[in-house]
Design a protein around this nucleic acid. Structure first.
Length: 747
DNA sequence: TATGATTCCATTTTT
DNA sequence: TGGAATCATA
């Protein structure tokens, strides 16, 4: 496939690079060389127009994008890229908040709370307000608060229209108080607080406006209202704002991103110049035709159409499948063929709408020993052991950080129990102080009684010692080793000596090495700076060089490309997933179309779509209908393979018709053992197949019987009690135990 | 305080 | 259905 040379730009790209002062919007379709334009433009400003690099601010949404941009600039303008301001909205704002912390009224060492820190603080606030979390979901509260911050609305201006928002407002207000007491900011605050400060303090605003003479924003379709306000304020005077984005790739409406920011850019900047990049250098003609045909049906979009001088390419394959297992098998089969034809594992991606869909694919790939990696799920930095270690580091840097303090005060167990902790929290909220202050009060007050106070005092002294150590040592890794050592955290895990404990130690090791990496890269390593980097970092940023098939949601795939892409689950209610009857149903549908557009334009050469006629969902079998998106594609571009939908309209075609599974049924071996109504038994993995339902049958379990438990091993049943489910007394090697029968299998 | 049991939830998640 | 979060109890 001819890729564009690194040196040449097409006419539109060139125009965007050299465009002079004043506002500029670049609509950059998928694969149109957007990143090149933005980096070249920055280089052009500095080299040709003599703008000092520190006067240029380039904002991205991900750390990865920021790093890539900086790396490319390093090559384009050697030696000058380091003084450029390149970063995510969050990182840039955090840096500015720290630089101006005094004017803004923040402690220099403020911590940043991520979503899970936020959630635990909200839960605590709700408990303090005696709000029943079964009536008002903490998640709802978090959503309301985050949405408010995205709109630039504080608790005072927060409008309460119904019971839910009335409660949310109350929670929001106290949440803010607690954040302040903890010297903490959440993600939303990083931008909101800076915007507030700029509004309140004209001197600060002018200083920042003067500082950043040129501002560039990538992925502008994804900015929310506060982010827009921030950018707008920065550029109020000089107007040198260049935004690059693609309204067709806006897939984060539900997170506050507003496409109007790019679509109506001219309302805010009437003299804005518009450039559209419509030539795609990534995909084949067929892929683009399909993608265009779908997104082109949206009514609310900036008119444009991607084209390419690439080859027409292979037909798009649509795989019609029986169910999700069939789908996975077909995909697995196609993957094998692609690999045989010379593609590498890294060249292939399986994309889906929801994480839950990954399982079937994983099973098939595992069975065929095909290396794969699944993105998403539990984030590395959310692992308990990682958060524990970081929790210690955070309260070393900022003793007021309540969420971290409460996290580690009894980890590893040091006899500070629930009641004691509850009392501390109570005392803090009564006095309106941080929990740490309450802790110091109790630990230093001789009036309090013996044992508890001793333990709290011990913890206070431990922390004081750790802080003293951290004061002499600025390598985060060294500090961490000391923490792990002195607290006994590492020791506890070593003694435990289970596979889980080992993997925890390994994860901690990985954090330590990322600290060493950081110390090696940073100009002036500090604990606070490291903590900031790590909380603003996501799994997306953790590079993975393994050669493996990539599996991820369509959302996570934005910005990536692969020679071959499979998009699974193209079924109504799944993709598009819309809530029928919702007030904004049409808006939702259009966003789903954009999502499909993003999915399909990830592919360079081969695109496969699949759907299943039937799918197991939350336990029961659902009949599915193929997605309207398949019908919205030009039929002549699609090559349908797989099961026939109806006898009349068969489109059983060549390509992948040689199915490996025997469709009429698993006849050999198992059918004679299973009742006709039962589904066929699964292929045994290891050992004989045991049907759980039989073991659950009370009549099957009787004293004297030998049974197996996954944890306790084999034992003998000594008694059976009634009830549903029945409980069984089992004599295991290390003693008798009461077990619910469903956890047992015959041995 | 640890661990087994129960309950609850289920779209996407750049920071 | 399956997993994580929360609950109950020895």
């Amino acid at each position: 496939m001819p890729r564009v040379s690194a040196l040449t730009l097409n006419a539109e790209q060139q125009a965007a690079v050299v465009y002079g002062d004043g506002p500029l919007v670049v609509f950059a379709g998928a694969g149109s060389g957007k990143t090149r334009v933005i980096t070249q433009r920055v280089a052009h400003l500095i080299e040709k127009r003599n703008v000092p690099p520190w006067r240029v601010l380039a904002v991205t949404f991900t750390n990865k994008a920021a790093r890539e941009m900086r790396a490319r600039l390093e090559q384009l303008i050697p030696g000058q890229a380091s003084s450029l301001w390149v970063g995510t909205f969050h990182a840039v704002c955090a840096r500015l908040l720290r630089a101006h912390h005094e004017q803004i009224g923040l402690r220099r060492d403020f911590v940043i709370y991520d979503d899970s820190d936020q959630r635990s603080l909200i839960a605590r606030v709700m408990r303090a307000l005696e709000i029943d979390d079964r009536v008002y979901a903490p998640k709802q509260m978090a959503f309301q608060i985050n949405a408010a911050k995205q709109e630039g609305i504080g608790p005072a201006e927060f409008e309460a229209r119904d019971p839910l928002t009335r409660v949310a407002r109350e929670v929001y207000a106290l949440y803010e108080e607690r954040l302040a007491a903890a010297s903490a900011l959440d993600f939303g605050d990083l931008i909101f607080r800076l915007v507030q400060a700029m509004r309140k303090d004209p001197a600060l605003k002018q200083a920042l406006q003067a500082r950043f003479e040129y501002v560039l924003v990538d992925e502008f379709q994804d900015v929310n209202h506060v982010q827009f306000a921030f950018v707008q304020m920065l550029c109020e005077v000089h107007h040198n704002l260049c935004v690059v984005g693609d309204d067709d790739q806006s897939i984060y409406r539900w997170r506050g991103a507003d496409r109007r920011n790019i679509l109506d850019f001219r309302n805010h900047f009437p003299d804005a110049h518009i450039i559209k990049l419509e030539q795609n250098y990534r995909s084949t003609q067929r892929i683009l035709r399909v993608a265009n045909s779908i997104v082109g049906r949206n009514l609310d979009r900036e008119p444009k159409e991607l084209w390419t001088s690439n080859e027409p390419g292979a037909a798009i394959t649509v795989m019609a499948c029986e169910d999700e297992r069939d789908e996975a098998n077909l995909v697995g089969h196609a993957i094998r063929m692609l690999l045989e034809s010379g593609l590498a594992l890294n060249d292939i991606a399986i994309l889906y709408r929801t994480h839950a869909q990954s399982r079937a694919f994983e099973e098939v790939l595992r069975r065929s020993n095909t290396p794969y990696r699944v993105f998403g799920g539990l984030r590395f930095y959310d692992r308990a052991e990682v958060k524990d270690l970081l929790g210690y580091l955070r309260i070393i840097a900022n003793p007021e950080d309540d969420v971290s303090l409460l996290r580690v005060i009894n980890v590893p167990a040091r006899g500070i129990g629930k009641t004691t902790i509850e009392r501390l929290i109570d005392a803090a909220s009564r006095a309106g102080t941080s929990v740490n202050t309450a802790l110091l009060d109790v630990a230093n007050d001789p009036a309090h009684n013996g044992a508890t106070r001793k333990k709290l005092e011990g913890f206070v002294q431990l922390m004081a010692a750790l802080r003293a150590f951290a004061a002499r040592e600025d390598s985060p890794a060294e500090i961490s080793r000391h923490v792990l050592d002195v607290t006994g955290y590492a020791e506890v895990l070593r003694v435990e000596d289970t596979p889980e404990a080992d993997s925890r130690l390994e994860n901690i090791g990985e954090v330590l090495s990322s600290m060493e990496q950081y110390a090696a890269d940073a100009e002036k390593p500090s604990l606070t700076e490291f903590l900031e980097t790590i909380t603003l970092e996501t799994d997306q940023d953790r590079k993975n060089a393994d050669n493996a098939i990539t599996m991820m949601t369509v959302h996570a795939a934005k910005g990536l490309e692969f020679p071959a892409v499979f998009v699974g689950g193209l079924e109504e209610e799944m993709f598009p997933r819309i809530r029928e009857g919702a007030a904004d149903e049409h808006e939702e549908l259009e966003e789903e179309r954009r999502l499909a557009y993003v999915a399909f334009t990830r592919a360079r050469e081969r695109l496969f779509m699949s759907y299943a006629n039937t799918r197991r969902l939350y336990g029961d079998l659902k009949i599915r209908r193929r997605s309207r998106f398949i019908d919205e594609a030009p039929p002549e571009e699609l090559h349908v393979v797989g099961v026939k939908r109806a006898p009349a309209q068969s489109s059983y075609g060549g390509g992948y018709t040689n199915r490996s599974t025997n469709r009429s049924g698993y006849s050999s071996g198992y059918s004679s053992y299973s009742a006709p109504s039962k589904p066929p038994a699964r292929e045994p993995r290891d050992g004989p197949y045991v049907d759980r339902s039989e073991a659950n049958d009370v009549s099957e379990i009787h004293p004297g019987m030998r049974v197996r438990h996954t944890k306790f091993g084999v034992g003998e049943v000594t008694g059976v009690s009634g009830g549903m489910p029945p409980r069984v007394t089992v004599q295991f090697e290390d003693g008798p135990r009461q077990i619910v029968s469903s956890f047992l299998t015959p041995a």
